[in-house]
Amino acid sequence: MVNTVPVEDVPPVGVDAGTVAAAVVVFAVAYLAVRLVTYALTRVSEASVERRITVKMFVPLVKFVIYLAALYYVLGPVLDLSSTQILAFSGVLGAVLGLGIKDLFADIVGGLVIVLERPYRIGDMVELDDHYGEVTDIGIRSTELTTLDDDTVNVPNYLFFTKSVTNSNDGAPEMMVVTRFHLSPDADLDRAVEVVRDALRTSRYVYLSDDHGVDVRVEDSGGYVTLRGRAYVNDVRNEGAFRTDVTERVFDVFDDEGIEVADPSAFLRSDRRQE
């Protein structure tokens, strides 16, 4: 048997116009504080590529802490509830979640998990829900990506629970970039590999260390040969520029030396077969 509480028995919650006005002011202050801290952290982070992502990692954390503190400050005194009020409030909350804001609730929880578990951070290059780009903001409700074509995509935070996330740099300033070249089977492969290797390791965007080398792999793709040049870019934001720099210089030498690239129809046919 379920005990129900008649509505007239629930004491009113002490919310009046003054309380609402105070809550608005508190949230406005919290919003301004978030903007200010975000601006300051962004300024600090941009001073050094090395520490950029580490510093920006604190942006969503600070954001959540400030908003949660504001929420607690507003709701704490108002919801100093009796057991009867808690029971009534739970019923209302359940109904509201069921009626449509469950996605919002899932997004907020998703945002908290992203901040605490850090599958990605602001500044990381990720693939989320078929969108690839740099994480530029992790908000309460969604994550903002800027794609390589400079489009801004907002992905709801709850997708983190249901979709896989590919993180290309995982908090590091550098990232591996793979550049592909399709060659005719008759091309001078030794020379082509040398050219691609030189173009990678001499690029103005390359990052080299004991753990970050350059290599070129040769693959028989059936009807043509693919060279996969792999090297690390010094700053994830230079990914496109790095690929362009390497590609341009490789093709300049291929043209000069008559190194034959694959007939485009050959790899288009192959792509279609793979699809």
Partner: peptide
């Protein structure tokens, strides 16, 4: 150059 990560 260190801040721009051009020297390591």
């Amino acid at each position: 150059l260190e801040r721009r990560r051009l020297v390591w």
